[in-house]
Simulated scan of single mutants.
Amino acid sequence: MPKFIVSLQSNADYEAAKQDIEKQGGSIVDDSMKILGMITVQMSDQSASSLKSLNSGIISVEPDQEVTIQVA
């Protein structure tokens, strides 16, 4: 199952958002970025896309992937 980074609004209820994610069938993989308002979750693509429609302060849901930079 794919992983996603869920970003929350600054005034969002973090625990409520986690509960909403779990109700949608997701599991919390990492919540160490709580101070930044971000949660790493594992869930289906369909469930992840439905998270944005919930009224739980979710700003974005993006695939968790490795990012690299190249210096020119």
Rank of each mutant, 00 (worst) to 15 (best):
I59T: 15
F4A: 00
G25D: 06
S10Q: 11
M38R: 15
M33G: 07
D45E: 14
K3W: 00
D45Y: 09
D20Q: 13
L36P: 03
S47H: 04
S50R: 10
I5F: 06
E15D: 15
Q42E: 13
A17W: 07
V29A: 08
S56N: 07
S44V: 02
P2Q: 04
Y14D: 03
S32D: 14
Q24C: 04
A17I: 04
N11W: 11
S47W: 00
E15Y: 10
I59N: 13
I35E: 13
Q24H: 13
S47K: 00
A17R: 09
I21D: 02
G25W: 04
S10I: 11
I39K: 04
G57C: 06
S10A: 13
S44I: 02
S53N: 14
S32N: 15
M38C: 11
V41E: 03
Q19E: 15
F4Q: 01
A48L: 01
K18A: 09
E62F: 00
I58E: 03
V29Y: 03
S50V: 05
M1A: 12
I69Q: 10
I35F: 07
G37Y: 05
I58T: 04
G26Y: 00
S44E: 06
Q9T: 12
Q24G: 05
A48Q: 02
L54C: 11
D45C: 02
Q70Y: 10
D45N: 11
Q46D: 12
G25N: 08
S44K: 05
I59D: 14
K34H: 08
K18M: 12
P63F: 04
G26K: 00
Q24I: 01
G57I: 09
A12N: 05
Q19V: 11
G26L: 00
I39F: 04
D30C: 01
V71Y: 11
D45F: 09
A48Y: 01
E66C: 01
Q46C: 00
A72F: 12
D20S: 15
A12Y: 04
S49V: 07
